[in-house]
Amino acid sequence: MRPVNMLGTWTLFLREIHRFLKVKMQTIVTPALTAMLYLIIFRYAMGDRQVPGMEVDYFTFLVPGLAMMAMLQNAFANTSSSMIMGKVMGMHIYLLMAPLSAIEVVTAFLAAAVVRAVVVAVAFLAVLMPFVDLSLLHPGIILLYGVCGSIIMGGLGLIGGMWARDFDNVAMVTNFIILPLTFLSGVFYSVKQLPALWQQFNHANPFFYLIDGFRYGFLGTGDTDPYASIVVVMGTVLVTIITCWALWRSGWRMKE
């Protein structure tokens, strides 16, 4: 049994954090600014419209979902951009040459993705919380869904980055898979507003459970039972981690 390269894993984790902190304008300030734009548009333009079937106004409903969407997109961006930049610029060989096992590499990348997602969510919510009647009703649920969602998206970013040959490939995954799935996951609406067919489609979308569960943590109400959804979410986390591990181990699209 080989000893675990703890220091190596920790260093890779720090390196990934360092990377997004070096461009904090883009990685942290931008989501906070976007939050302000959402505030102006949805808060003041949409007024006090209520969400059908829920006792909350539309903007209050919207904020947790938007925060989660920002987390998911940032977790994906962190791993996918690091991977594809490495490949395009030829830096990925240093990762391959380092004495890090697949599980160590995957752990470091996913942990960094979670950190970025959490930092973004905190920045985003810090801007918006004063303007909405929201509280951390179930902090455990919020944390659990936030972290699980970030792991899943960080993992998809890792897989997407490994698969991609260039930036265009990554943009393709982001725009054709990630963006539609997050937008159609109930961030902007309650599924109860949808026709039956679309409701069913939503129940097959893992992001739907993530966003609904996360929102439940703030509102105490949602479209699904967050404790039951945990099973779906945890299962997805497990499948994501195992897939990342197996792909990295096999050298898929990384080693000839």
Partner: peptide
Amino acid sequence: PFFTPREVLAFTSGMFG
């Protein structure tokens, strides 16, 4: 492109344990 030579060396060292 985000790092200085000193950082590159420190990170590489760490990754090698």
